[in-house]
Each structure stands twice: as structure tokens, then as C-alpha cells.
Write a protein that binds this DNA or RNA. Structure first.
Lengths: 321, 321
DNA sequence: TTGAAAGCGCTAACAG
DNA sequence: CTGTTAGCGCTTTCAA
């Protein structure tokens, strides 16, 4: 390639990387040769030498929760514009697998790593410290971070939900969760929610926690079960919109009068919930933005150091409360 | 690291890669030292030397269509178990950007590359030929593939949809698409659908193609528009479930008698459509399996060569037809 | 079964 | 503005 262009290897390297102080003549020669040979640089070699890789490691639990695709879109939107690539790892909500995945991804000497949640043990902290790689943890902003954090306060969100439901006049409120309250932030939400209801003098009537992963189907089934067991319940707060949509669909089929007879509130504010016959009340979280901001912080972290960014949430007052 | 274990560099390498013919004593020494130093191998160097990288490039259009997260989950399920990592690129349905992304990903010398769709020009074919990297194209099985293909026949699926609706007695059928019929496979579906309706002697009444991307919200709006313009329509086939759900939600709100007064059929068979008050009729596509099979084919391609795998679809007869 | 030497393709550091 | 030199951390090849 260098010989083809009739210049030195390093000049090729400089042109390919848009280094400064390159004459137009040289640039022309190299670009022409590159096109003629459809030359693809080997970033493996470049990264090895320069000790920094244009790869960003991204560790998410799974793609099957609609939250994470949106986060990933946000991450990619920033990485793409900076010419970086994401190496992806999925933990499947399994801490051991997460450790393994992180180890694998770190072996590519990424420019930074984005992790989900704030609950990471010594194994992870050790690896990251050793590699001296910038970290951003997303989703949560409460906890002991490794580096930066970008997310929302789940306890505040739960309190806002409790306040909203109380303001709407609901007094006999139930809760439905799934997946045994994994991840921990959903547990944190329920606890804060219960506490705030207590504070209002209208303690939670019952919490129904399923073993299965969230889906509209099991949300519907759980709603039926909860209402059968506790017919006095006048409102249900769900761990997420998938469950809540199941509840809403059940209520619509059963001809319940929503929101008078039964109030329903989800979490995340997915688009689909805005299009249902009665829009689903929910807590909107900035998922895309969370990913974008995380990538952004990662790139700034060399100069600006670790930060914690609260992206906030919004109570979306649909028609179900 | 090698000195710490008191052995040669190459022995460390062999142990780390589980090479054959290693004595237990050596293996012990190396593993102990590795744990003591929490040694992370540098795959950049390994891949550079061995010319093969344990990375698999994955190019998808976007995460905001629920199809692709499921595909990605499928891909990851296989890669994870083989100790491979995915480098992800999103094209945003933009061919130019796709070329750029593919070039970037190829520069990591991936073990293989997974592309979405079968419409790739000479630029892409050239790069791939030059790198001599195995390719699997997903989603479609009709077209001129670069390497392997894994997907479903969109024309057959459309024909099956037309047959189903005809068998259900619908005679004045409309169609709603979005995003100007990107990607091309959705256009292929509509054309095959129209042709089959023609074949049945009940030509399509009207097709309403939106500019915006699919969502339940615009699906509802388009449904209203289409029915206003063509009140005689008794059934609508949608380009995907997002649009169809919007139509269903509108019909439920408006008190239309589904499926008698209006039939609705989507495409993809998303879970959410199975939980709606009336389950949404749709064409189920094997999304997770498509990703898994694609990754699988990539790994086998060295030995078995390119293949085309038709994963098939299923007409899901919900309550909306 | 283990080791020594060489070099993958690039880029940092320094010269010119 | 361009080139020379050296070496990133591994693994291939060959030898012991």
C-alpha cells in the first residue's frame, strides 16, 4: 500500500487518520492508492500500537426489555458520530456471566466501558481499576459508582408515583412486579413506593411478585390474581409498562371502568402505552438520552473526570389514573 | 506475567488458549500467576498476530424496531457460548451509512459479518471479497446473496396473508405501510400481497404509505385516514405489528366490531399483540432464531460453505381476522 | 511438552 | 511537511 502510493508507511497512516500538517499532494497520492486497492486499515494493529482502541464496551442485561434497545440506540448515535464502535456483551441479568462478559470485553482494550446498574462487586472493580478504563454506569444514580453514573433516581420516581396516585384519590393500592424483582433498582422502587404510601397513611394493600420475566401476558394474569385475592384494591402500580399494559388489556376486556373502578400505572413510558385506547399512565424515563449521555461522558471522562448525571423522569398522566 | 509464573511467554499463551499438550504442572503455575495478577490477555495483540479476531461484526438498521433486539439476542446467545464478541454497527436504514459502518467493522478483522437484508451494492461486495470474511445476510431469503442467507420468504408470507384474509371472507382489503416502504422487503411484501389479492379476484382497494417510521400512533392515524377515504374497506393488512396495533387500538376506541366490521392483520407476531383484548392476527417470524442461526452459520461457514436457510413463518390467527 | 526467535500492521517519537 | 526507527503483546514456526 505504501509502495503503491510511492510514499512511506507512516504517511499512509497519517492520511488515514486525518493527522494535521499533510500536504494536499501527499493526501491525494494516498487516497488515490487507497481507493485503487480498496485498502482497509487494520485497526487491530493500530490499536495495539497506540494502546487505545476506538472500541467502547457496552454491557447490557438483555435486549428483550424494550428499555435497552433504546439505550443502545442512544449509545450508538454518539459513538457513530465519533467514529467509535461498540463491542456488546449481554449479561442475562446474571452477575457471574456479567463478570465473564466484562473480562472478555476489557481484553479488547476498549476506550471505555458502559455498564448497567450500580451493583458491581470487587471482581469487576478490580478488573476495571487494573485496566484503568473509564466507566459509566447507567440506569441508576443512587449507589456507590465506579466512575460516572447516568440515570434517574428510582426512589424519587417511586415517590412521585405514590404521590400521583394519592393525589388522584386512590387509597387501596396494590403492586405487581416480576422476575423476582431483578434488577435491584425495581426492588428499590417498590420499597420507596411502599414507604411513601405508608407516609400518606394508605399502606400498600398487597404486592404480587412473579417469578417469570415481565410481559403483558403475565401482567394480565397477575392482575386477575391480585384483584381476586384483594377485591378492595382500587389501583395497581406495576414494575414496568409491559406488566401494566397486560393489566390494562385485561381491564378493557373485563369491562372495568378505568380509571374510576381501577387505576393503573406503569413505569418507563413506552410509546405503545401512549397509543392504547386509554393511554397508560406511567413514569417516563429518558432511555435514548441515557445511552447518548453515557457515551458522551465516557468520551469526556479523560478530561473532565467522573460525573453523576440525573436525567430526571416525568410523570406521564395518561388516562388510566 | 511470564516471569511471574517462571515460565516462557509462549507457555502462558498456550495455557490461556487451552492449547493441547500442556502439563498439569505448567497449567497450574500459569493459572495461579494469572489469578494473582488478575491478568487480562490483550486480544488486540493476539488477533493481530493470528489474523483472526473472535469478533463478529453485526450490522443492523436500528434498535427501535422490536425485530432487531430479538435478532441480536439470538446472535449473542450463540456468540456468547462460543466465546465470541459482537461489534455492532447501526445503519439507520441509510445505504451510505451502512457502507461506512461495514468498512469500520471490517477493519477489526472480524471472524465474520452479519448483515441485514440482501440489497448490498458493489462497494460492500468488494470490501467483503477483499477481506475474505464469511457473510450471513439475515431477514430475507430471496435475492442474490453474498454468502449465506437466513430468513423468511417475504413474498410467501404476503401470499399466505392474502390467502388467510380471503379465506376469512374479506373482499375489500386495504394496506398500510410506513417509512416510505423501507426496507425493501416490506415493499416486496406489499407487491406480492397485491398480486395475490388480484389472483383471488379481489384487488387491493387502496394502499396508504406513510413517510414516518412505524409506530402504533401513526398506525391509528393512518387507519382513520384510510377508512375515511375508503369506507368500504373491510380489512387492513399492515406492514408490521406496530402499525396494526395502532389500528386495533383505534378500532377498540371507536367501538368498531372487530373482526366482523373490520379485520386487521399485522406482520411479525410480536408478543404484545397476543395480550391485547383481541389478540392481533399476524405473520409470526422467528426473530430470535434468525439471529441464532445466522451466528451459527457464520461459525460453520469455514467448513460448510454458504447456505440459504428458510426459517419459515406462521400465520397467527388471533381474534382480529 | 516446552522454549527461542521472528514478526503481525500499525503508530509514537524523533529526525531531517 | 515527510521519513526512519523501534516496538506494542501476542502467536506462528521451528527447534530442543
Amino acid at each position: 500500500m505504501a509502495t503503491r502510493a510511492g510514499v512511506s508507511e507512516i504517511s499512509v497512516s497519517r492520511v488515514m487518520r486525518n493527522a494535521p500538517n499533510i500536504s494536499d499532494a501527499l493526501r491525494r497520492k494516498v487516497t488515490d492508492a487507497a481507493n485503487a486497492l480498496s485498502y482497509t486499515p487494520n485497526r487491530l494493529a493500530g490499536a495495539l500500537k497506540s494502546q487505545s482502541s476506538n472500541l467502547v464496551a457496552v454491557v447490557l442485561p438483555s435486549m428483550s426489555n424494550a428499555v435497552f434497545p433504546a439505550v443502545l440506540d442512544g449509545i450508538e448515535s454518539v459513538l457513530d458520530e465519533q467514529g467509535l464502535n461498540a463491542v456488546l456483551g449481554l449479561s442475562g441479568y446474571d452477575p457471574d456471566r456479567e463478570v465473564r462478559v466484562i473480562r472478555e470485553l476489557l481484553s479488547w482494550s476498549p476506550k471505555g466501558i458502559i455498564l448497567t446498574g450500580v451493583h458491581h462487586g470487587e471482581a469487576v472493580r478490580g478488573m476495571i481499576a487494573q485496566m484503568d478504563v473509564p466507566v459509566v454506569q447507567i440506569m441508576d444514580i443512587e449507589g456507590d459508582p465506579i466512575g460516572s453514573m447516568v440515570g434517574v433516581s428510582h426512589s424519587h420516581a417511586a415517590i412521585a408515583a405514590a404521590d400521583h396516585l394519592h393525589a388522584r384519590g386512590y387509597r387501596r393500592i396494590g403492586y405487581i412486579g416480576a422476575w423476582n424483582e431483578r434488577p435491584e433498582r425495581s426492588l428499590a422502587r417498590r420499597l420507596a413506593f411502599e414507604q411513601q404510601l405508608q407516609h400518606h397513611g394508605t399502606p400498600l394493600v398487597a404486592a404480587h411478585i412473579l417469578e417469570d420475566r415481565s410481559s403483558a401476558r403475565i401482567g394480565a394474569a397477575a392482575t386477575i390474581a391480585l384483584l381476586t385475592e384483594h377485591p378492595e384494591i382500587d389501583c395497581i402500580f406495576y414494575a414496568n409498562d409491559d406488566l401494566a399494559l397486560g393489566g390494562l388489556f385485561y381491564a378493557l376486556s373485563a369491562g372495568l371502568d378505568v380509571p374510576r373502578e381501577l387505576g393503573l400505572m406503569g413505569f418507563n413510558g413506552l410509546d405503545i402505552g401512549k397509543a392504547t385506547p386509554i393511554p397508560l399512565s406511567s413514569i417516563e424515563t429518558p432511555r435514548f438520552q441515557m445511552g447518548a449521555k453515557a457515551a458522551d461522558l465516557l468520551l469526556r471522562s479523560r478530561t473532565e473526570g467522573p460525573q453523576t448525571v440525573d436525567l430526571g423522569f416525568r410523570v406521564f398522566d395518561g388516562g388510566t389514573t
